[in-house]
Amino acid sequence: MGLGVMGKTVMRNLFGKPATVMYPVVKKEFYPTTRGSILYDESTCNYCTLCAKRCPSQAITVDRAEKVWRIDRKRCLTCNFCISVCNKDSLSCVQEYAAPVVKEFDSWLFQAERIAGEKIEGLEGQEGFSDKDA
């Protein structure tokens, strides 16, 4: 096998950009359609409990009487089924993933560390995305 067989690939790899990204120093750029996590808008929700009934992994619980909406981020698959059944458009999908947790937490509330020390826009005060460190 001479140099000709893999020569072009070797030259391209030597003088081109690497295929990997230096995460976590460099944050990965997500695409507009990436399914990262579910965003909840409290102002338009009417607590009809449809999203809780349809969730395939029972990640959402809704308490109609006390007007509380909770999601368990560890069970959520971001399949977006809840977004399609919601009549009031209170749910939407954002590209940012919930960051990895390093401690054992109570399953309804867990605090997430930031990726590369930055705040995730629009998610302050959401259940599961708190400003405080654990």
Partner: peptide, 8 residues
């Protein structure tokens, strides 16, 4: 391509 068209 999969991520840009389907999200995952």
């Amino acid at each position: 391509i999969f991520e840009q068209t389907t999200g995952g």
